[in-house]
Computed example of a mutant assay.
Amino acid sequence: MSVTLPRIRAVNAVAAGGSYAAAARALKISQPAVARHVKDLETEYGVRLFDRKNGILSPTPLCNELCDIAERMEEAERAATRLLTRHNTLLNGRLVVGLGNSMPGMALIALFLKRHPSIEIAVETGSHEQITRAVLTREVDIGVLPDVPADGRFRRELLARQNVVAIVHPDSPLSRENPVTCERLMAEPLIFRTKGSSTQRVVDRAFRTAGFEPSPLLTLDTRDAVYEAVVNGLGVGFMWRFGTGRTDIVHRVSVTDMHRQYEEAVFSLTDERNLLFDAFYSTVTAFRSEAEVILENGKPFP
């Protein structure tokens, strides 16, 4: 036998109500069941939990300590219930969203919060590989990535279509040579992403198909680092066309060898289906109808 939650509840209810009858009413169980829980604990551990004074059961000092533990256990139970139900409520639910790029995922989240302002959203960022793995291990609830693999484990929904572009400083001659080719880019200092990046996979494929094996000037681990390197005139970087909402000095330049459009998709595990997930996917459908115009103009979703 062990110290079970029903037994602890019974002791706490008797201490609060002063009798087995009051505890039974509070717990909505029979009076004999309450008495049995208390007596079993006293017998098994050789302790006295209550003294009877003037017809009222008064907790002993030991029982008062036990009741303090009981309160913490009941709060833990309430927290566990909130945790288990947070994905199935639109009142105070919580979602963890994994983004490979800031955009268009952030624009989607903004629209979702306009529709459901009481939902708490936590955002994790990382490479394509990191976000995919986080969805598979349930570290994040929903991922937003380009070129999500066709996998039966995933529920997928198209968010937008986009391609990879070069990004250049406005002083670069390339800013006036739109579009450019991989052959032309071979004459420039190139800034690449580390392996595991969806952007870099497209860039590597394009150069390889065009018959080139470039050696980058820099290899950086985040899109923001690549962006800042370009801002500081270090070379030519690459990003998804809608990968950021920033509209500062960097110019986006189309690359003829990277014209292919890839699907940016929202995805989650197939067995994760509940009210909150369905609301997020419904927002994806609403976003998609106007996404291209909104993203091209760099404006917030209305």
Rank of each mutant, 00 (worst) to 15 (best):
V255Y: 05
D257I: 10
A70D: 08
G55H: 12
L111V: 00
H259N: 14
C182S: 09
I191T: 11
G237W: 00
K114C: 02
A160Y: 08
I109C: 01
D221N: 10
L113E: 09
S127C: 02
I29P: 03
F212K: 03
R246F: 13
E263I: 01
R133M: 06
A80P: 01
R193P: 00
P189A: 02
A225H: 13
G18N: 06
A134E: 05
R223G: 14
N88V: 03
A16M: 11
A166M: 05
S268C: 15
F154I: 06
R9G: 09
P6W: 02
A225V: 07
N64Y: 04
L57H: 11
E74W: 09
M258C: 10
L220H: 05
L62R: 14
R82I: 09
N232E: 11
G143K: 03
I119E: 05
M1K: 13
L276F: 09
E42H: 05
N274C: 15
R115T: 03
D248G: 12
L111I: 07
D151V: 12
T270R: 15
T199E: 02
L275P: 00
N297I: 03
R25M: 09
L295F: 01
E71P: 07
T219D: 01
R78H: 10
I56W: 09
N64D: 13
L158R: 15
D151M: 10
R36K: 15
N54R: 15
C182K: 11
R115A: 06
T285Q: 13
Y45G: 07
G243H: 05
R52F: 02
K28Y: 02
P104E: 05
S127W: 00
L62W: 10
A107N: 14
L218T: 00
P302M: 01
L217G: 04
T285G: 07
L27A: 05
G105M: 05
G211L: 01
V253N: 02
I294A: 04
D278E: 15
M239S: 08
G93A: 08
L234I: 00
L145I: 13
E264Q: 14
T199I: 12
M186R: 08
H37Y: 15
E183D: 10
N101A: 12
Y281R: 05
D278R: 09
R9K: 15
I121Y: 05
F192C: 06
V230N: 06
K28S: 11
P170W: 13
L108C: 06
K28M: 06
A229L: 02
A187L: 11
G126Y: 13
R86D: 00
V97C: 03
V97S: 05
E75A: 14
L295D: 02
D221S: 14
L136P: 01
R94A: 07
D248W: 06
V38H: 11
R133L: 07
V96D: 01
S215M: 11
R246S: 04
G98E: 00
V34D: 04
I109G: 02
R223V: 12
E74H: 06
V38N: 07
S127G: 07
S282P: 02
M239G: 04
Q261F: 14
L99Q: 04
H169G: 04
R138I: 03
Q130R: 15
M103I: 00
V250W: 03
L111S: 04
L5S: 07
D147C: 12
